[in-house]
Amino acid sequence: MRVALFITCVNDTLYPRTGQATVALLRRLGVDVEFPAQQTCCGQMHYNTGYRRQAEPLVRGFAEAFAGYDAIVAPSGSCAAMVRDVHPRIAGRSMGRVPRDRVAEVVPKVYELSEFLVDVLRVTDVGAYFPHRVTYHPTCHSLRLLRVGDRPLRLLRAVRGLDLVELEGADECCGFGGAFAVKNPAVSAAMCSDKVRHAADTGAEVLCAADNSCLMHIGGTLERQRAGVRTLHLAEILASTQDDPHGSGWADGERSPA
């Protein structure tokens, strides 16, 4: 099975550690993951802000970069949902500018990380060790577009040492929404402030999600409010092991999960 990592432009640029964790995790599980260097961005920002035509070359580029792989794994529910839910629609309306058949070929191969682990590799215990109290925020696109269900929770429950606590109002949006946070800052901030309050109420050290864009929004607010809760991508928790609790064997950079 040829497996490609779809890093996503946000992770690539701002959160390389999430990508490093995903690579380390998949290799630990025996998956020879590749990184197709032609990949860039799924076009979600353009499409969701109303620039569908600008997204077209990115959709075409995605189909070209990932052609021929058996599975394409993304550590982002939102970007995986963009590809699966929207790429065929963009191709369909592109008057041939985006080849429909190429898109149709690639789209079913796309998995969000927890889907790939649970559905394709059929593991829930990935051998991780993370001795901390953690709460999980199911991001909207993982929850409602991909319908990942309880897969991330099953993965987290199997992590040794991890104390998983429930987040009140978990399925409510954090208020990021890309353009929304910029165009409706007051409502976005009000939504996030409720999310942050619920997170702090859990007493967790770490708020975990499968989307760094939502975590950037929540984490930025937590940091500003000095709420004492850190944000961490699911992949980074799953990559942590007893032998290497800080990820020094797989990650560069300064942010450490423990």
Binding site: I7, P185, A189, R224
Partner: peptide, 24 residues
């Protein structure tokens, strides 16, 4: 107004991959 901006990492994922072949 209400959030910190994210830190820019020392190196992007793609440069890290190119440098390390995916970390060993």
């Amino acid at each position: 107004d209400t959030r910190e901006v994210p830190r820019i990492p020392e190196e992007s994922f793609r440069d890290w991959w190119r440098r390390t072949q995916g970390g060993g």
